[in-house]
Computed example of a mutant assay.
Amino acid sequence: MTASADVPVPRRGPKLEPLLLSPDERVVLERWARRASSAQAVALRARIVLACAGADVPPIVVVARELRIAADTVRKWRRRFLTARLDGLVDEPRPGRPPTISVDQVEAVVVSTLEEIPKNATHWSRSSMADRSGLSKSTVGRIWRKFQLKPHLTDTFKLSTDPLFVEKVYDVVGLYFNPPEGAVVLSVDEKSQIQALDRSQPVLPMMPGMPERRTHDYVRNGLTTLFAAFDVATGEVITSLHRRHRAAEFKKFLAKIDKEVPGHLQVHLICDNYGTHKTPAIKAWLAKHPRFHLHFTPTGSSWINQVERWFGFLADQKIRRGAHKSVRSLEADIRAWVKQWNENPTPFTWTKTAEEILDSLARFCQRISGAGH
Rank of each mutant, 00 (worst) to 15 (best):
R11K: 15
R11P: 02
R11V: 08
G13T: 08
P14C: 15
P14V: 14
L19W: 08
S22E: 10
V27N: 04
V28P: 12
E30C: 08
A33C: 15
A36R: 05
A43D: 03
L50E: 14
A51G: 07
A51K: 10
P58K: 04
A64C: 12
L67M: 05
I69T: 05
D72N: 13
R78A: 09
R79G: 09
A84W: 13
L86V: 14
D87E: 03
L89A: 02
D91C: 05
E92Q: 07
G96S: 06
G96R: 03
V103T: 13
D104P: 00
E107Q: 05
E107S: 05
V109P: 01
V109M: 12
L114I: 03
A121N: 06
T122Y: 00
H123M: 06
W124R: 05
S125W: 03
S125G: 07
A130L: 07
G134N: 05
S138T: 12
G141A: 15
W144V: 06
W144C: 08
R145M: 12
F147W: 15
P151G: 02
H152L: 05
T154Q: 12
T154A: 13
D155L: 03
F157W: 12
L159E: 00
S160N: 08
V166F: 02
V172F: 06
N178K: 07
N178Y: 12
N178P: 01
P180N: 02
G182R: 02
V184S: 01
L186T: 01
D189I: 11
K191V: 06
I194W: 00
A196P: 09
R199L: 14
S200N: 08
S200I: 13
S200D: 15
M207Q: 14
P208R: 15
P211H: 15
P211I: 09
P211F: 06
E212S: 12
H216F: 11
Y218H: 04
V219F: 10
N221S: 04
G222E: 00
G222F: 04
G222N: 05
G222P: 00
L223T: 01
T224G: 01
A229W: 00
A229H: 03
D231Y: 07
D231F: 01
T239F: 02
H242D: 10
H245C: 15
L254S: 08
L265A: 06
L269C: 15
H277E: 09
T279G: 12
I282P: 04
K283H: 09
W285T: 15
H289F: 14
H293E: 10
T297K: 00
S302M: 00
N305G: 03
N305E: 01
Q306N: 13
W310C: 01
F311A: 01
A315P: 10
A315T: 13
A315N: 10
K318H: 04
R320V: 07
R320P: 03
G322S: 04
K325A: 10
D333K: 04
W341T: 06
N342K: 04
P345H: 10
T346S: 07
T346C: 12
F348M: 04
T349N: 06
W350E: 01
T351N: 02
I357A: 02
L358Y: 13
R363N: 11
I368N: 12
